[in-house]
Design a protein around this nucleic acid. Structure first.
Lengths: 161, 161
DNA sequence: GCCGGCCTCATACTTTCGGGTGATTTTGGC
DNA sequence: GCCAAAATCACCCGAAAGTATGAGGCCGGC
């Protein structure tokens, strides 16, 4: 029981533990080396350089070890052939799953045509600020940071032609 | 002449150079601190610890900056409605009728993926200014004034997927 | 060799975007 | 009628995009 708790503890915290142990070990080695470092006084910089390299390596190793691989979802497009050019049906499910409003969708559509915010504002008879607000919310909901990304994503999700 | 060679050199080796400079700077600081370290004798371990942390951080930073993120690919099937099944062939006629160069086309492609100029620069290993120049020329040749328009027009002309 | 096109980069400047905050008005449903 | 969501607008600020101009390096054709 205790063993399993312990091992589980070790398993969960092995990286920090390892790191701590490395530090401790290093300090021991330091203590031992202290004498000859003081003797060979000039070797100090080299020694520090060593430490630096060592820990840079450790940092690199840690990062590679810890960073979880980014999960990338690849859409395998299973093609469904259509005869008549079905005029494009928006994927309504996606739209209201993301909570995208009618106006926002409209703005996205005009964005996809390459219009600037000002032009969109003129087209919709609203102010530039309004368009900005809509696009901001849109980006937030679509989890993108630029209009180009929004357009790209929108097309892939079939919410714009 | 000399300037540009030098700056290109710097640009290509900026990471190693930065690293080297950091090391050099650190050593200077060390030299300066040496006295008080010897005085406050016991602070030595703390000091080493600091170095260790510093360079661990540096290692982490380096890794994140340099290493391509590992990706774990998840395949998701998705139905896509298509009319013709041809896999896309770029319309070369249009491209060189407009006088669009290889590099410019490359930039356009990355734009279409929603990348920012900076991201494109990183991807192509060139400077931000270069990407701006390319995109400017591209817009001129395509007779558009914004990247969104370029992408839209590019897709309609079949010069990008 | 030299010219032109392409690629590269820089500097300086203007415009457009996008984030954040706050506020008022419409509107649709209960 | 009331409430919540949507739509409208404003202001500020920083970041990104785009314009203009100049310049050096590289390569292929003449």
């Amino acid at each position: 029981m205790k063993r399993s708790r312990l091992s589980s503890f070790i398993h969960h915290y092995k990286i920090p533990l390892l790191y701590g142990l490395s530090l401790a070990a290093l300090l021991l080695v330091l203590k031992w080396l202290e004498v000859r470092i003081l003797l060979i006084d000039h070797a100090f910089e080299v020694y520090i350089g060593g430490i630096a390299l060592l820990f840079t390596a450790l940092g690199i190793w840690l990062t590679r070890k810890l960073s979880r691989p980014r999960v990338e979802t690849v859409l395998v497009e299973k093609e469904v052939y259509v005869q008549g050019g079905l005029p494009f049906a928006i994927n309504e499910r996606e739209v209201d799953q993301l909570g995208i409003s009618k106006r926002e969708l409209e703005v996205l559509g005009l964005m996809a045509e390459g219009l600037s915010n000002q032009e969109i504002a003129d087209r919709l008879f609203v102010s530039l600020n309004t368009v900005k607000t809509h696009s901001s919310r849109l980006f937030e909901k679509m989890e993108v940071r630029r209009r180009t990304q929004a357009v790209e994503k929108g097309k892939r999700m079939n919410i714009i032609p």
